[in-house]
Amino acid sequence: MGIFSKLKQAWFGDVNWEKLDDEFFDNLEESLILADVGVNIATEAVNSLRNAVFSYDMKDPEQVKAELRKILLQKLSVGDAALDTAKSPTVILVIGVNGVGKTTSIGKLAARLKGEGKKVLLCAGDTFRAAAADQLEIWANRAGVPIVRQHEGADPGAVLFDALQAAKARDVDVVLCDTAGRLHNKQNLMNELAKLRKIIDRELPEAGRETLLVLDATTGQNGLIQARSFKETAGLTGIVLTKLDGTAKGGIVIAIARDLGVPVKFVGVGEGIDDLKPFDPEEFVNDLF
């Protein structure tokens, strides 16, 4: 992914592996902070590594690297990173502020689930943003899945109700519901999400549930603030991290997992319909090096 170039510089620079000094650990800590891991987590990780290096007299760079890999992987291990669609139907509420790639992530996820053999239905629950339903319909067509929508300004609860009725009538496996993306600190948005959950409780009480928050990796610590706000009010089950390409400071993945205890389930690595990948913590940590 190329997201930790500073970490690579710290690692492969002029390092005396026979006697690792404070400069090495300071550079490593700075690299982690610059990669948006966050100050607290960077300090914790480097202190743990320092203790291990001195306790076990590590002099081999591969051994030190393996130890840091283990430390970071532990911080990412906060729950099942797999999407739970075992129950049929499963209703997935997709939330997040405008501009993070929410609608495109829904389209990509629909294509992925359809490719797994599931019957997927999209619900255009963001009725507040102009042309949001039109944008979602374009992605529905790309993914080859049906969509339930109403006119702009319609009641999102009414759109979800129609989608759930359609899901029951058509034996749909997964309902993917777009939601309004107004600012995360607006109480009316949180009230709207609570109303949507009540409709699911009433119409499909046995349905599986996921609530995925879409975050833009390039927003760094601001994304973490958004995630905290949504977790407090929306009951998150997972994160979809978009724009995790060669320029993104992807350490935010570790910060989210460690601070919120919410697993990252998917990462967006490009613009194509197949560029939403299941998140593999071990693969991610290996890519850092």
Rank of each mutant, 00 (worst) to 15 (best):
K119C: 04
L189K: 04
A143F: 05
L196R: 04
L276T: 07
Q187L: 14
S31T: 06
E271Q: 14
V285W: 05
F54L: 14
V148K: 01
A42V: 12
D173S: 07
V78C: 11
P156A: 14
Q187M: 14
A158N: 08
K119P: 00
D171A: 15
A66W: 02
A111R: 08
W11E: 03
V285P: 00
F4N: 01
D134I: 10
K243L: 06
T237M: 02
L215N: 02
K118H: 11
G13K: 00
E192C: 11
A110Q: 12
G261Q: 07
I200W: 00
L288T: 09
R149Y: 09
N51L: 14
A124N: 04
G153C: 12
I273E: 15
E232W: 03
K195T: 05
K108V: 03
K75M: 15
V39T: 14
I138T: 15
A132I: 07
E206A: 15
I254F: 14
L68Y: 04
K119H: 11
A111W: 01
K231L: 13
L213E: 02
G101D: 13
L32Y: 06
R112V: 03
L113Q: 04
A132H: 05
N51M: 14
A45K: 05
A124H: 08
L160F: 07
D155C: 05
I3A: 15
N185P: 00
L276V: 05
L7P: 01
N47V: 03
K8I: 12
E44A: 11
F230V: 04
F128I: 06
L224M: 10
A217E: 03
G79Y: 06
K102D: 09
E29W: 12
I256L: 15
V214L: 05
I239A: 02
G250R: 00
G13R: 00
V94D: 09
A66T: 11
V39G: 03
A110N: 10
V94A: 07
V262Q: 06
L176K: 08
M1V: 13
K243F: 11
H184W: 09
A255F: 09
N141C: 07
A158H: 09
